[in-house]
Protein backbone atom coordinates (compact mmCIF):
# COMPACT_ATOMS: atom_id res chain seq x y z
CA UNK A 1 0.00 0.00 0.00
CA UNK A 2 2.82 2.35 0.91
CA UNK A 3 6.26 1.88 -0.54
CA UNK A 4 9.43 3.92 -0.08
CA UNK A 5 12.24 3.35 -2.56
CA UNK A 6 15.63 4.77 -1.53
CA UNK A 7 14.09 7.99 -0.33
CA UNK A 8 16.24 10.89 0.74
CA UNK A 9 14.89 14.14 2.10
CA UNK A 10 17.19 17.06 2.59
CA UNK A 11 16.15 20.36 4.16
CA UNK A 12 18.42 23.26 3.33
CA UNK A 13 18.44 24.46 6.95
CA UNK A 14 19.01 21.15 8.78
CA UNK A 15 20.50 18.69 6.33
CA UNK A 16 19.26 15.17 5.61
CA UNK A 17 16.09 14.27 7.50
CA UNK A 18 15.73 10.91 5.74
CA UNK A 19 18.63 8.92 4.37
CA UNK A 20 18.21 6.18 1.81
CA UNK A 21 14.94 4.93 3.27
CA UNK A 22 13.24 1.87 1.77
CA UNK A 23 10.32 -0.10 3.15
CA UNK A 24 6.92 -1.36 2.18
CA UNK A 25 3.71 -1.45 4.12
CA UNK A 26 1.16 -3.98 2.89
CA UNK A 27 -2.49 -3.17 2.42
CA UNK A 28 -4.32 -3.64 5.71
CA UNK A 29 -1.11 -3.66 7.74
CA UNK A 30 -0.75 -1.74 10.99
CA UNK A 31 2.71 -0.49 11.87
CA UNK A 32 4.36 1.80 14.40
CA UNK A 33 7.09 4.24 13.64
CA UNK A 34 9.39 5.06 16.54
CA UNK A 35 12.62 6.93 17.12
CA UNK A 36 13.93 9.97 18.94
CA UNK A 37 12.64 13.45 18.19
CA UNK A 38 14.03 14.62 14.87
CA UNK A 39 14.69 11.07 13.68
CA UNK A 40 12.52 11.77 10.67
CA UNK A 41 9.15 10.27 11.68
CA UNK A 42 7.11 13.34 10.85
CA UNK A 43 9.02 13.93 7.64
CA UNK A 44 8.26 10.37 6.55
CA UNK A 45 4.54 10.87 7.15
CA UNK A 46 4.58 14.25 5.45
CA UNK A 47 6.10 12.67 2.35
CA UNK A 48 3.17 10.26 2.15
CA UNK A 49 0.67 13.12 2.52
CA UNK A 50 2.62 15.17 -0.04
CA UNK A 51 3.18 18.04 2.36
CA UNK A 52 6.79 17.46 1.33
CA UNK A 53 8.42 16.04 -1.76
CA UNK A 54 11.42 13.68 -1.53
CA UNK A 55 14.82 15.05 -2.60
CA UNK A 56 15.70 11.68 -4.12
CA UNK A 57 13.97 8.34 -4.45
CA UNK A 58 10.31 7.50 -4.82
CA UNK A 59 7.24 7.18 -2.67
CA UNK A 60 4.38 5.02 -3.91
CA UNK A 61 0.92 4.95 -2.40
CA UNK A 62 -1.56 2.42 -3.74
CA UNK A 63 0.87 1.70 -6.61
CA UNK A 64 0.76 5.35 -7.59
CA UNK A 65 4.15 7.03 -7.83
CA UNK A 66 3.70 10.32 -6.02
CA UNK A 67 6.39 12.04 -8.08
CA UNK A 68 4.08 11.62 -11.09
CA UNK A 69 1.24 13.37 -9.31
CA UNK A 70 0.64 16.91 -10.60
CA UNK A 71 -0.06 19.56 -7.92
CA UNK A 72 -3.73 19.85 -8.85
CA UNK A 73 -4.21 16.16 -8.04
CA UNK A 74 -2.77 16.50 -4.52
CA UNK A 75 -6.18 17.22 -2.93
CA UNK A 76 -7.58 14.00 -4.38
CA UNK A 77 -4.58 12.07 -3.14
CA UNK A 78 -5.06 13.44 0.39
CA UNK A 79 -8.68 12.34 0.42
CA UNK A 80 -7.44 8.75 0.42
CA UNK A 81 -5.49 9.42 3.61
CA UNK A 82 -6.79 10.05 7.08
CA UNK A 83 -4.25 12.20 8.88
CA UNK A 84 -4.08 12.57 12.65
CA UNK A 85 -1.81 15.07 14.37
CA UNK A 86 -0.45 15.49 17.87
CA UNK A 87 -2.04 18.93 18.19
CA UNK A 88 -5.16 17.61 16.42
CA UNK A 89 -5.52 20.64 14.09
CA UNK A 90 -9.17 21.25 14.91
CA UNK A 91 -10.85 24.47 13.88
CA UNK A 92 -11.70 26.31 17.10
CA UNK A 93 -14.63 28.27 15.70
CA UNK A 94 -16.45 25.25 14.29
CA UNK A 95 -18.45 22.67 16.19
CA UNK A 96 -17.31 19.09 16.60
CA UNK A 97 -19.78 18.07 13.91
CA UNK A 98 -18.46 20.68 11.45
CA UNK A 99 -14.86 19.71 12.15
CA UNK A 100 -15.51 16.06 11.49
CA UNK A 101 -17.60 16.89 8.42
CA UNK A 102 -14.79 18.88 6.77
CA UNK A 103 -13.25 16.06 4.66
CA UNK A 104 -16.71 15.17 3.35
CA UNK A 105 -17.59 18.79 2.59
CA UNK A 106 -14.41 19.31 0.59
CA UNK A 107 -15.04 16.04 -1.24
CA UNK A 108 -18.40 17.42 -2.37
CA UNK A 109 -20.80 15.19 -0.50
CA UNK A 110 -24.44 16.05 0.07
CA UNK A 111 -25.66 17.25 3.42
CA UNK A 112 -27.72 14.15 4.06
CA UNK A 113 -24.83 11.80 3.44
CA UNK A 114 -22.52 13.98 5.50
CA UNK A 115 -24.89 13.91 8.48
CA UNK A 116 -25.07 10.12 8.42
CA UNK A 117 -21.34 9.57 8.09
CA UNK A 118 -20.31 12.18 10.64
CA UNK A 119 -22.63 10.68 13.26
CA UNK A 120 -21.31 7.21 12.50
CA UNK A 121 -17.71 8.41 12.91
CA UNK A 122 -18.50 10.27 16.14
CA UNK A 123 -20.28 7.20 17.43
CA UNK A 124 -17.19 5.10 16.70
CA UNK A 125 -15.02 7.35 18.87
CA UNK A 126 -17.76 7.67 21.49
CA UNK A 127 -18.39 11.39 21.11
CA UNK A 128 -21.83 11.52 19.56
CA UNK A 129 -23.18 13.58 22.46
CA UNK A 130 -20.60 16.33 21.79
CA UNK A 131 -21.77 16.90 18.22
CA UNK A 132 -22.66 20.56 18.84
CA UNK A 133 -19.81 21.38 21.23
CA UNK A 134 -16.90 23.62 20.30
CA UNK A 135 -13.47 21.93 20.51
CA UNK A 136 -12.35 24.30 23.29
CA UNK A 137 -14.87 22.76 25.70
CA UNK A 138 -13.39 19.27 25.23
CA UNK A 139 -10.56 17.55 27.12
CA UNK A 140 -7.31 16.62 25.40
CA UNK A 141 -8.35 13.01 24.87
CA UNK A 142 -11.71 14.05 23.52
CA UNK A 143 -10.14 16.50 21.10
CA UNK A 144 -7.83 13.79 19.84
CA UNK A 145 -10.79 11.49 19.31
CA UNK A 146 -12.53 14.23 17.31
CA UNK A 147 -9.36 14.40 15.21
CA UNK A 148 -9.55 10.64 14.70
CA UNK A 149 -13.22 10.83 13.75
CA UNK A 150 -12.31 13.46 11.16
CA UNK A 151 -9.52 11.22 9.81
CA UNK A 152 -11.79 8.21 9.38
CA UNK A 153 -15.05 9.86 8.38
CA UNK A 154 -14.36 9.63 4.67
CA UNK A 155 -13.39 5.96 5.15
CA UNK A 156 -9.89 6.34 3.69
CA UNK A 157 -7.90 3.16 2.99
CA UNK A 158 -4.86 4.62 4.81
CA UNK A 159 -4.55 6.34 8.18
CA UNK A 160 -1.41 8.22 9.16
CA UNK A 161 -0.99 9.38 12.73
CA UNK A 162 1.79 11.63 13.99
CA UNK A 163 2.24 11.30 17.77
CA UNK A 164 -1.50 10.94 18.37
CA UNK A 165 -1.00 10.29 22.09
CA UNK A 166 1.81 12.77 22.64
CA UNK A 167 -0.20 14.88 25.07
CA UNK A 168 -2.27 12.13 26.68
CA UNK A 169 -1.89 10.09 29.85
CA UNK A 170 -1.36 6.28 29.55
CA UNK A 171 -5.01 5.43 30.17
CA UNK A 172 -6.25 7.71 27.36
CA UNK A 173 -3.40 6.58 25.14
CA UNK A 174 -4.48 2.97 25.49
CA UNK A 175 -8.00 3.96 24.48
CA UNK A 176 -6.67 5.66 21.36
CA UNK A 177 -4.57 2.64 20.39
CA UNK A 178 -7.60 0.39 20.95
CA UNK A 179 -9.45 2.60 18.47
CA UNK A 180 -6.67 2.17 15.92
CA UNK A 181 -6.89 -1.60 16.35
CA UNK A 182 -10.58 -1.44 15.51
CA UNK A 183 -9.78 0.31 12.22
CA UNK A 184 -7.09 -2.28 11.58
CA UNK A 185 -9.71 -4.99 12.09
CA UNK A 186 -11.80 -3.58 9.22
CA UNK A 187 -8.83 -3.58 6.84
CA UNK A 188 -7.47 -0.04 7.05
CA UNK A 189 -3.73 0.41 6.55
CA UNK A 190 -2.28 2.33 9.52
CA UNK A 191 1.09 3.94 10.06
CA UNK A 192 1.45 5.51 13.50
CA UNK A 193 4.44 7.52 14.65
CA UNK A 194 4.70 7.35 18.44
CA UNK A 195 6.93 7.58 21.50
CA UNK A 196 4.68 5.32 23.49
CA UNK A 197 7.03 2.32 23.65
CA UNK A 198 5.33 0.75 26.71
CA UNK A 199 2.05 0.34 24.95
CA UNK A 200 3.20 -0.72 21.53
CA UNK A 201 5.57 -3.34 22.87
CA UNK A 202 2.56 -5.15 24.25
CA UNK A 203 0.84 -5.06 20.86
CA UNK A 204 1.51 -7.61 18.12
CA UNK A 205 2.30 -5.16 15.36
CA UNK A 206 5.25 -4.25 13.24
CA UNK A 207 7.56 -1.61 14.69
CA UNK A 208 9.96 0.41 12.55
CA UNK A 209 12.62 2.39 14.38
CA UNK A 210 14.19 5.42 12.77
CA UNK A 211 17.52 6.79 13.87
CA UNK A 212 18.96 9.94 12.29
CA UNK A 213 16.89 9.45 9.19
CA UNK A 214 17.79 5.80 8.66
CA UNK A 215 15.68 2.73 9.29
CA UNK A 216 17.56 1.22 12.23
CA UNK A 217 15.27 -1.67 13.07
CA UNK A 218 12.19 -3.19 11.48
CA UNK A 219 10.28 -6.01 13.13
CA UNK A 220 8.40 -6.98 9.99
CA UNK A 221 8.01 -6.35 6.31
CA UNK A 222 10.12 -7.51 3.45
Amino acid sequence: MIRFERVWKRFPERGDALKDLSFELASGEMAFLTGHSGAGKSTLLRLIGLMERPSRGQVLVNRMNLSDLPPRKIPHHRRQLGMIFQDHHLLPNRTVFENVALPLVVAGMTRKEIGKRVRAALDQVGLLRFERALPITLSGGEKQRVGIARAVVARPPVILADEPTGNLDPELSREIFALFERFHDVGVTLLIATHNIDIIERMPYRVMRLHDGRLEADSGGW
Partner: peptide
Protein backbone atom coordinates in the same frame (compact mmCIF):
# COMPACT_ATOMS: atom_id res chain seq x y z
CA UNK B 1 -4.40 30.73 8.06
CA UNK B 2 -4.97 27.72 10.34
CA UNK B 3 -8.28 26.95 8.75
CA UNK B 4 -6.79 27.06 5.27
CA UNK B 5 -3.98 24.78 6.42
CA UNK B 6 -6.46 22.22 7.75
CA UNK B 7 -8.53 22.48 4.57
CA UNK B 8 -5.43 21.66 2.55
CA UNK B 9 -4.68 18.68 4.77
CA UNK B 10 -8.12 17.14 4.39
CA UNK B 11 -7.91 17.41 0.62
CA UNK B 12 -9.62 20.68 -0.27
CA UNK B 13 -8.88 21.96 -3.76
CA UNK B 14 -7.63 25.51 -4.26
CA UNK B 15 -10.97 26.37 -5.84
CA UNK B 16 -12.78 25.21 -2.74
Amino acid sequence: RDEIEVMHLVGATTGF
